[in-house]
Structure formats: C-alpha cells, structure tokens
C-alpha cells in the first residue's frame, strides 16, 4: 500500500495522527451542531450513492422490469455467460480503455516534458491542449461525426490528398473503434498534459543539475529522473483513466450507437440498452455489478503492481 501513500491525499494522511489529539479534547469542546451541518450532504449521499450500491446488488437477483419483480437467484449472472453481446461489449470496452489510456498517458507525458521547457507560449499552448477537455462529449462527438463523414468529411479529404483510399470510418466494423478511440484521445490528452505538467513542477531541479554534472544527457535524464519521479502521477492517471475509460458511453451512443454490427458496443452501452430500452432492470443491474467488480479489480491490480514495483 505504499503506492497509495504516494498519491498523497493529505486528508487521509493527517486524519490518523490528528484523531489521537482530538479524542482527548473532544469532551472539552464538543460541537453537536456538526451533525446538523453534515446532515443535508449525508442525506443526498445516502439516497443517491450509498443506498443505490446495495439496491443494485439486490436488483441483480431479481427479474424486475419496472412492473413485476420476482427473485431469480443467480440466474441473471448465469445468463451473462451466454449473452453474446455482453461478451462483445466486454472485449470492446477493454480495447477502448487500453488504447485510449496508453495513448493519452504516453503522449501526455512526452508533451508535458517538452512543454515544461522555459518558453513564451506555454499558456496558450496549454490552453489549446485543454480546450477539448472543457467542451461536452456531445459537442466533441458532433464535431468528429462531421470530420469522419465518409464522402465529404475532412478525414477522407486529407487521406485523398496524400493519395490514400477513402475509409468508411464509423460505418466500417474495422475502423469504427479506432475512430472512436481517436476522438477520446483528442478529448482527454489535454487533461493528462496538465496533470503531468503539475507533476513536473514538483521535481527538484537539483536532481537534473547533479545528473548533468555526472555527464548524463537529456534523454538519459528523462529515463533516470523524469520517469521515476513522475511515477506517482502516472499511476494516478492510469487508475483514474482506467475507471473513466471503462465507463465509456456517451461518444458510443452518439457517434455509432454501438454499431456497425456491435463493433463498438461497450459495457455501459449494453447496460443502458438493457435497462432503459428493453427494461430488463434486473439483468442490467447484474451487468452493473460485474462492471463495478471489474473496475475494483483493475484498480486493486494497479495498486498491487504499483507497490511491488516500488519495492524492487
């Protein structure tokens, strides 16, 4: 768990030590009004975050369809094994998450390192990288729908200009997923750049100066100092990025609707369709539990791997 400490959440770190001191003082000046102040927050949290987790688990053992509800044991989970679309969605989600994550983290880090050089235009460059992150996924999808338009879009115009054949992008089972991934890459790259930049500001210059004295060149410094020093930031981006990318839905729903021939359907897209188009609430709830389980598992694996590589 050393890795968890590296992300450095001061609230978590300080709570333990402070608690001891506080416990002694508590009897002297207690503030029962504190309960009243957290009440509204807790009410909403309970109703819309905590209770739904348990309720979701409960629903997954029923065949609720917004009308009738009967217990069905683990039949929903069994049925998932034979659901061809669920299998495809699982595969597509993994592909989307993996490639979007690798692309945004790798390019985000490299670009941040170059941006970190002292030069005039950094504010404007940072802004241009970050602006896709600010707009809605709907707006981004609309813009890229037009770019990918098969006969008159910019993507094919550029391909033709360099003498390549046109591609049917979102209408082609081979190209739809890469096209969606590229849209995600464009949208989330700036977020990674900004976070990496913040991490780079925290690396002590002395390290680089010492390395320079020892005769290490720029690339060696990058390998031996920048990458290891950025590990906590990289780790943070991988964990949060994995969770976000595993829940990909909006651009799928808008750009491809899961098609063509289910080549871009994802877990959340399947959950949405089953629950809110077919009203198979219990079945979709079981999918949500699997999704939650997968995200938790991947996060735990990351922490485990992170702490292991830290020790060695």
């Amino acid at each position: 768990m050393e890795r968890a400490a590296d992300i450095d959440i001061p609230a978590v770190r300080s709570a333990g030590a402070e608690a001891v001191v506080r416990r002694r003082k508590r009897r002297l000046d207690a503030d029962p009004i504190g309960y009243l102040l957290i009440l509204p927050f807790y009410l909403f949290l309970l109703l819309f975050v905590l209770a739904p987790i348990g309720y979701n688990l409960f629903l997954s053992f029923t065949n609720y369809n917004l009308d009738t509800m009967h217990g069905v044991g683990i039949n929903n989970y069994k049925a998932l094994f034979y659901d061809r679309f669920f299998g495809i969605a699982l595969k597509n989600t993994a592909i989307y998450a993996f490639f979007t994550l690798v692309l945004t983290v790798a390019f985000g880090q490299i670009l941040a390192v170059f941006l970190n050089y002292k030069w005039g235009g950094i504010k404007w460059v940072r802004m241009s990288f970050f602006s896709p992150y600010v707009i809605s996924m709907v707006a981004a999808s609309m813009i890229w729908l037009w770019i990918y338009e098969p006969s008159h879009g910019v993507a094919n115009t550029l391909l033709e200009a360099i003498g390549l054949n046109k591609v049917q992008w979102l209408q082609d089972t081979k190209w739809a997923m890469p096209a969606v991934i590229f849209t995600g890459f464009w949208k989330f790259l700036g977020y990674n750049v900004v976070i990496f930049l913040a991490g780079l500001q925290g690396i002590s210059r002395d390290l680089y100066e010492a390395a320079a004295v020892d005769g290490a060149g720029g690339f060696r410094q990058y390998l031996k100092i920048t990458i290891p020093q950025l590990m906590p930031v990289t780790f943070f981006l991988i964990v949060t990025g994995l969770i976000n990318n595993f829940n990909v839905f909006e651009q799928i729903q808008i750009m491809t609707g899961g098609g063509p021939l289910n080549s871009t359907t994802t877990l959340v897209h399947q959950i949405y369709n089953r629950a809110f188009q077919e009203f198979l609430i219990g079945y979709a709830a079981a999918m949500s539990i699997v999704l939650l389980f997968l995200v938790a598992l991947l996060t735990a694996a990351n922490f485990w791997y992170g702490s292991r590589s830290h020790e060695s």
């Binding site: 209770a51 987790i53 979701n56 969770i243 949405y272 629950a275 609430i281 709830a285 949500s288 995200v295």
Partner: peptide, 12 residues
C-alpha cells in the same frame, strides 16, 4: 462511477 448506480438511482 455514476454509471454503475444509474439504474437504482432511476428507480429511487
């Protein structure tokens, strides 16, 4: 992630 709880929240 909110996507995981959208079904129970809808029903609530």
């Amino acid at each position: 992630p909110p996507q995981v709880t959208m079904i129970p929240v809808f029903i609530i």
